[in-house]
Design a protein around this nucleic acid. Structure first.
Length: 871
RNA sequence: GCGGGUGUGGCGGAAUGGUAGACGCACCGGACUUAAAAUCCGUUGGGGCUUUGCCCUGUGGGGGUUCGAGUCCCCCCACCCGCACCA
């Protein structure tokens, strides 16, 4: 694609090139104009009475360069921000950096760089890239979570949570790399081994800080119902994650005590199937398992094997089901029989009581376990009350009736649950309990590049809060990454302080916060980013909740749930006045691209690949290249396209228009070069059309419009209505399609009379206004040509469709015979059924010949269907 | 493994239970040009016929509800996201 300033070989600009829209001049120009006019500034606490609208996109991790996912995310948010501004809202649209995290430490270890310098350099680069995109952001509000200004306020919030009883210290499991002597993130565990050392990873228990998110489980669940502008699927995922369940705890006596332990308590949602018990299984971390392992080498070996499984739930659940018989037995209080106690690798210590009873008939996992270890499979569930089903390699885990189960026999599953619990309670061996899948949030990380946990450990006084006047607890800059583990641990001086209570020598907590904390309250900080307290209550009262939050679907659970919890906890501690942070949520799909590999199996970047007729070759070597799957853009697969290059070659508007046009925003988008060129051509076409029409004589509105002019004006108003509706529903690809349609129709008219001159100018003006949220620079350019000296389109109100011009006079109706299309008729809109049926019968007379009409269906302005049979 | 999604021409997609394929890309044909680029106009799901037009078929696969199903229901397949220390 030729650059606009390229000269022809004669050294002079050709005609087409002189009329080209030069984005490289236009885009910086309009960005400067917006800046000068302060179009996108917001006040912490505005004085006016304009309605507020807070648009926020998930802030980026400063990895170094913006990627296409960012371009898409921030373009979507910017369309909303600009659209809402045009609709008369006072818009808050800030930007910041989720700046703590592992990659900075990895970069530090690899290049011996300092995480802070690395991060701030990345921020500087990415800020410049974002600015080139022309997003309508209030850059005065920029924050970075690694600024002591920010994380110091975060430390205050944590201490307030602690005072309010929302913080706990207890043991938690981590992935431990025994060679590198360091804690690993789940993503650093590959097939059970440390990503650098290759050592088998161990589960290890450490003392950790926890936030008591489980205290909020009921209200986090109930709160979902109030989130009307959240995608259903996200609410459903959160609901399942919180995982409310009603069941029972049942206590089984061990036939012989072990290490002083006499009973095992299980949690079950199926007390109705207690008569179908086959075994009892405990988690490898269960106290009984440990007691057994203490005197049994085989058991200890099994526990060690389980410990090498990793801590992630996916790893545990996908691993082959394995068990170890402890030799212990328990008595089932209902059947009064004894059952073996197994240690099983699929039982989670964190859920319920860390022990389950196995009923193979009613649970598929139990069925597989029993089959594998030849345990009995008693049949206690049946689809009907008086037949015994054959289990065909599968458990009956649906609804049905209880059979073979003493006093529960013949009852429905639901009724049997109630009766079983009543009996267990009467026997004092069990009780009904409500259980949650949600676990408390472990927030301790054994890493340097995060927010220090503001706690001082004193041998005499225990853990103490860092006093307010000593905040922020800042990260030391002089750290070394040469040793494995957390640099804060081996810093010579940083950790040594006096106990705030007794004044004796004490040590700082060297763990830092989970970075999810940083992103759990930034939306509140944005309301008053320079406030001396974590939030300015007047500002958050005005701006929160966020009216529209936009981000990736991959955050559907963790980030969004943590932010919801944090908001409630902040409300309880007086930092905000709302319970829910995000009133509206939109989750976008990912940006994907073809991936490429050379003959040696190395991934190649798209710009290293030349597409040929029947395949692809390497740009430099000419060797064949394998075109792989279309998948999420990622550095490791090298299937990334640098937005910087795209903006350089085609301009920000083209990039914005393309990411909006090609598919619905909630779906994944595939980046294609040809699609970008198509968008670029449209930018050029629209610019030419704008210049052409701006050059036509200006005329007053004619008294009566007819023919082509009326048609164009009606289409223009139809387009206003359609684009407005599309923007309201995030159907940005449809908004784009409607603008294409209007522009195409406009270009097809000729200014042959005053009516058409008028209608063309109106249509062009509307195109500029409707496309302004999406292609803001070009829209300004066209608007300025149409209305010299009338200010910025960024400050113009949104156009309104004239209802009088939205009426339809004539409709084309489908005519069907037995539901199959046999013709169409064009009739006046709203014509009664009788007349339409008569016209329709005439239109499909050949298809009706020799048939008897059994029924006639008429849907006004839509369809006529004759149901016929042979005469 | 569990939870949540998605599936429509060569490609991205459009379609309140009512004419499947809007709009864009690509392709092909034409105009303009010494030529190319750019631009403009037009065709295009597949198959068939007695070709002003008509018929059959078609929305991942299989069944069902309905006058009528891409859309609603059941079963299956493939792919994607998440799974608590990646952000």
């Amino acid at each position: 694609m030729a650059r606009p300033e390229r000269k022809t070989k004669h050294g002079a600009m050709s005609d087409t090139e002189t009329t080209r829209y030069d984005f490289s001049l236009s885009e910086p120009h309009w960005q400067a104009q917006w800046e000068q006019a302060g179009c996108f500034k917001a006040e912490d606490v505005p004085a006016g009475d304009k309605p507020k609208y807070y648009v926020l996109e998930m802030f980026p991790y400063p990895s170094g360069k913006i990627h296409m996912g960012h371009v898409r995310n921030y373009t979507l948010g910017d369309v909303v921000a600009r659209y809402k501004r045009a609709q008369g809202f006072d818009v808050l649209h800030p930007m910041g950096w989720d700046a703590f995290g592992l990659p900075a430490e990895n970069a530090a270890r690899e290049n011996n760089a300092d995480p802070a310098s690395w991060t701030y350099a990345n921020i500087a680069n990415m800020r410049a890239e974002l600015k080139r995109m022309g997003f309508s952001l209030d850059w005065d509000r920029e924050i970075a979570t690694c600024d002591p200004d920010y994380y110091g306020q975060q430390q205050k919030i944590f201490l307030d949570f602690w005072k309010s009883g929302l913080v706990e210290r207890r043991g938690g499991y981590v992935n431990w790399d025994p060679v590198d002597m360091t804690v690993l993130a789940n993503e650093q565990v590959i097939d059970g081994r440390g990503w650098r050392s290759g050592a088998i990873v161990e589960k290890k228990q450490l003392s950790q800080w926890f936030l008591k998110i489980t205290d909020f489980a009921p209200e986090l669940l109930a709160g979902l119902k109030t989130l009307e502008r959240w995608p259903e699927r996200v609410k459903l995922m959160q609901e399942n994650w919180i995982g409310f369940s009603q069941g029972a705890e049942v206590t089984f006596p061990l036939t012989a005590p072990v290490d002083g332990i006499e009973t095992v308590t299980v949690y079950t949602t199926r007390p109705d199937t207690l008569f179908g018990m086959s075994f009892l299984a405990i988690a490898p971390e269960h106290p009984i398992a440990k007691a057994v392992a203490a005197s049994n080498a085989e058991a200890a070996a099994f526990l060690a094997e389980c410990a090498s499984q990793g801590t992630s739930e996916a790893a545990i659940e996908t691993a082959e089901k394995k068990g170890f018989f402890t030799g212990l037995k328990v008595k089932n209080p209902l059947t009064e029989q004894d059952y073996p106690v197994w240690i099983a690798n699929f039982v989670l210590m964190e859920y319920g009581t860390g022990a389950i009873f196995g009923c193979p008939c009613g649970d598929q996992r139990d069925y597989e376990f029993a089959s594998k270890y030849n345990l009995p499979i008693p049949v206690v569930v049946s689809p009907s009350p008086d037949t015994l089903p054959e289990l065909q390699g599968k458990a009956l885990d649906g609804d049905g009736y209880i059979v073979n189960s003493g006093f529960l026999t013949g009852l429905t599953v639901a009724e049997a649950k109630k009766q079983a619990i009543a009996e267990l309670e009467a026997m004092k061996v069990g009780k009904a309990v409500t259980n949650w899948r949600l676990r408390d949030w472990g927030i301790s990380r054994q890493r340097y590049w995060g927010c220090p946990i503001p706690v001082i450990h004193c041998e005499a006084c225990g853990p103490q809060a860092v006093p307010d006047d000593q905040l922020p607890v800042a990260l030391p800059k002089d750290v070394s990454f040469e040793k494995p583990g957390n640099p804060l641990d081996h810093h010579p001086t940083w950790r040594h302080v006096a106990c705030p209570k007794c004044g004796e020598a004490a040590t700082r907590e060297t763990d830092t916060f989970d970075t999810f904390i940083d992103s759990s309250w930034y939306f509140a900080r944005f309301c008053a980013p320079r406030a001396a307290t974590p939030t300015n209550v007047d500002a958050v009262k005005h701006w929160l909740p966020v009216d529209q939050y936009v981000g990736g679907i991959e955050h559907a659970i963790l980030h969004l749930l943590y932010a919801r919890f944090f908001t409630r906890a902040m409300e309880r501690t007086g930092h905000v006045t709302v319970q829910e942070p995000f009133a509206g949520l939109f989750t976008q799909g990912m940006v994907t691209h073809e991936s490429y590999k050379d003959a040696d199996g190395r991934w190649l970047y798209p710009d290293e690949v030349v597409k040929t007729g029947n395949g692809a070759t390497h740009r430099d070597t000419g060797l064949p290249v394998t075109v792989g799957r279309v998948e999420k853009m990622s550095k490791s697969k090298r299937n990334t396209v640098d937005p910087g290059v795209i903006v350089e070659r085609f301009g920000a508007d083209t990039a914005r228009w393309f990411v909006l046009s090609d598919n619905p925003p909630e779906r994944d988008v595939e980046w294609t070069e040809t699609g970008v060129q198509g968008s670029f051509r449209f930018v050029q076409r629209l610019s030419r059309l704008g210049a052409l029409i701006a050059g036509e004589p200006m005329v007053d509105a004619p008294a009566v419009l007819e023919g082509e002019a009326k048609k164009l004006l009606k289409l223009t108003h139809k387009s206003i209505a359609a684009v407005t509706e599309a923007l309201d529903t995030f159907a940005f690809n449809l908004a784009v399609a409607r603008i294409y349609e209007l522009a195409g129709n406009l270009a097809g008219t000729t200014p042959e009379d005053a009516s058409l001159l008028y209608a063309r100018r109106v249509a062009m003006d509307i195109i500029a206004r409707l496309s302004a949220p999406m292609m803001p620079h070009l829209a300004e350019d066209i608007f300025a040509k149409l209305h010299p000296g009338s200010g910025l389109v960024a400050q113009q109100p949104w156009p309104k469709a004239d209802p009088a011009l939205l009426t339809v006079d004539e409709v084309t109706i489908a005519v069907q015979v037995n539901g199959k299309l046999r013709g169409t008729i064009t009739v006046p809109a709203g014509q009664p059924a009788e007349q339409n049926i008569a016209v329709a019968a005439e239109a499909v007379s050949t298809a009706l010949a020799g048939q008897t009409i059994v029924k006639q269906i008429h849907v006004p302005d839509r369809i006529v269907n004759f149901v016929v049979k042979p005469a």
